[in-house]
Nucleic acid binder design. Structure first.
Length: 606
DNA sequence: CCCCCCCC
């Protein structure tokens, strides 16, 4: 096993020399104390069989590997990408060199190794004679596939001694992936993917203005923000799609809530920050980088997550004006329906100018970076937020593929909507009543929604309408004072009128079983095809119409959208199902689903 | 140092 290691590698690296793909053994790991809210970082003790090094850090993107148990003690790893950085400790011993592992491959898991290899000792300092530090004549086999996309021709070692930034021709730049708060002596050569508008803020802590740019190079991406003076200094200089040499920024932990960029850090421009445009466009620097997910995967994304995706705009709603309930601001929004090859359809909400300026002609391709997943009525949708990038018909392979796919699509192609429409329209799964019970729908933390074909077995008509507070937003039952006045306890007010509200209980059934369900006002009106006030008056007048309205739906089939949720009453819990919407059955759709199900059961589905 | 990003 000892021959797996590359003795001498540690000394070579810590002396500042190059050593490709060193293979070392992990002999210890420990978390580094960090501030609250910061991502945990780990320090390692490694051995190359000859020397130990405890000044080794794991790049944060490798933290999950460690936390998942892949980097236990005795594990042998090949370091496929690393950098050496100096930190000044507050003593007189001069700077300490830290080895930062950026990428690695597990050669042999610690459980298979089970012991310390050789008898390594702490290397002296870097003042040892250089001759003693040369790598062996047969270094470890080069890595065939490093997961890092860095290929700037400088090998694995990241030079850290770039101080010649005075010249924009500075040839040695650092990959974005290597930036960390531990080291500020770097220059990156990066392209501006997107630039935000200037925004102002005003809060208890003060006021100011800011903007941010998302930067990219071959190795990765990072967001940079300029505040106040930095806005005046850099906003005009930085243009989308142009390449710049940038140095002397402050790095801090990124808040993933506001950026989908693949970087644990983000940077802030400081008074020392230098930004120099690169006049000749360097085509080796990529343009915007997307981490696309297929639209059907959005179904499984958590609300609040930021995602990148691309789709064809199949349909667009009107521009809608509304007032924010929380901020009272006037808002404009527009919902687009996007589709892709996964046959999923998802709603993308545009706001403000983007809603107004969007042109639906020719079913444009829409690419989004950093769209925010939302949840409504059991469906998932995406909304553009401040940090999102939004590109129409981008010149990227995925967009061309989508265009070709969509243009060749049969006109009657069906898509599965994973977003709920505002009218409670269909989305999500279909199942029978028995399947809903078997699958324990409604037993999770959140309510479950499903669609079902069912027949109305029985409607309970007693107490199905009640007199409610006439205030538009209040639907509380009023107390009839029998003086022509109706009292609402919630509004603490008496009114001369009321409105009828419906709350209906009914039993529904299909071949698999039956279920008691509740319908509130809007769904009940939809299903009964009559207004609550009308039904209330029929009841008052003891009109035969009252009975007729319920008879009309009894033993009739419907497509229902149901909400299932367990509710607790004291120590008793009961599964409650509420009808969100009721539509006459679409037999064509019903048949299509049954045929698909039969094919699947028969093993004939493709 | 922002970090609000809205609605059904």
């Amino acid at each position: 096993m000892a021959d797996l290691l590359t003795p001498g590698a540690i000394a070579t690296i810590m002396n500042g020399d190059e050593y490709p793909n060193p293979v070392v053994q992990i002999l210890g790991t420990k978390p580094v104390p960090c501030k609250e809210g910061q991502e945990q970082r780990y320090r390692l003790l490694i051995s190359d069989g000859r020397h130990l090094n405890s000044y080794t850090m794991l790049a944060t993107q490798l933290t999950p590997m460690l936390q998942q148990g892949e980097l236990v003690d005795y594990t042998i790893i090949k370091i496929t990408n690393h950098l050496v950085t100096k930190i000044n400790k507050n003593d007189d011993k001069g700077p300490t060199r830290i080895l930062v592992i950026i990428d690695l491959v597990v050669v042999k898991h610690g459980s298979e190794v089970g012991e310390k290899i050789g008898n390594p000792c702490h290397a002296g300092d870097t003042n040892q004679p250089k001759e003693a530090m040369q790598p062996p004549t047969t270094p470890a086999r080069p890595s065939s596939s490093s997961s890092s996309s860095v290929s700037n021709g400088t090998g694995n070692r990241r030079s850290i001694d770039i101080t010649h930034f005075n010249s924009p021709m500075a040839s040695k730049t650092h990959p974005i992936v290597s930036l960390s708060p531990y080291q500020n002596n770097w220059v990156i050569k990066a392209r501006v993917m997107t630039k935000s508008p200037i925004r102002t803020w005003s809060n208890a802590k003060g006021e100011g203005k800011l903007f941010s740019v998302d930067l990219v190079d071959e190795s990765g991406e990072i967001r940079a923000t300029g505040f106040r003076d930095a806005v005046d200094k850099f906003y005009e200089l930085l243009e989308e799609n142009k390449v710049y040499l940038i140095s002397k920024c402050q790095l801090k932990m990124a808040n993933k809530k506001f950026s989908s960029l693949k970087n644990d850090y983000e940077m802030t421009f400081t008074d020392d920050t230098r930004i120099v445009p690169v006049e000749e466009d360097d085509t080796s620097i990529p343009t915007i980088q997307y981490n696309f997910v297929k639209l059907d995967a959005i179904q499984d994304s958590a609300a609040g997550q930021l995602i990148d995706f691309v789709g064809v705009c199949k349909a667009a709603g009107d521009i809608v004006n509304l007032t924010s309930r929380t901020t009272n601001r006037e808002l404009k929004k527009r919902d687009l329906t996007l589709v892709d090859q996964s046959k999923a359809a998802v709603t993308l909400t545009l706001w403000g100018n983007q809603a107004e300026d969007f042109n639906t002609d020719g079913n444009p391709i829409v690419a989004v970076k950093g769209g925010k997943v939302g949840e409504f009525n059991g469906g998932k949708s995406v909304s553009l937020i401040g940090g999102s990038a939004f590109h129409i018909n981008p010149d990227i392979p995925e967009a061309h593929r989508l265009r070709g796919w969509y243009d060749g699509l049969a006109g009657d192609t069906k898509f599965t909507s994973i977003s709920a429409s505002a009218d409670g329209g269909s989305s999500g799964k279909w199942c029978t009543l028995a399947e809903a019970i078997d699958e324990k729908l409604g037993y999770g933390d959140k309510a479950d929604y499903f669609n079902t074909y069912t027949t109305v077995m029985h409607v309970k008509t007693d107490r199905c309408v009640y007199k409610a507070c006439p205030t538009p937003e209040c639907n509380k039952k009023v107390i009839d004072q029998n003086t022509g006045q109706y009292r609402c306890e919630k509004c603490n007010q008496e009114f001369e009128s009321f409105k009828y509200r419906i709350m209906l209980s009914m039993n529904i059934g299909d071949f698999s079983g039956t279920q008691w369900v509740t319908l509130f006002h809007d769904a009940a009106e939809e299903m009964l095809g009559a207004k609550g006030d009308q039904i209330g008056r029929w009841q008052e007048e003891e009109s035969s119409e009252f009975g007729e309205v319920f008879k009309k739906i009894t033993l009739k089939p419907f497509t229902l959208r149901l909400r299932a949720k367990v509710e607790n009453y004291g120590d008793e819990s009961r599964l409650k199902m509420v009808v969100m919407s009721a539509k006459p059955p679409d037999y064509k759709d019903r048949c299509r689903r049954l045929v698909a199900e039969i094919k699947q059961l028969a093993g004939l589905s493709s």
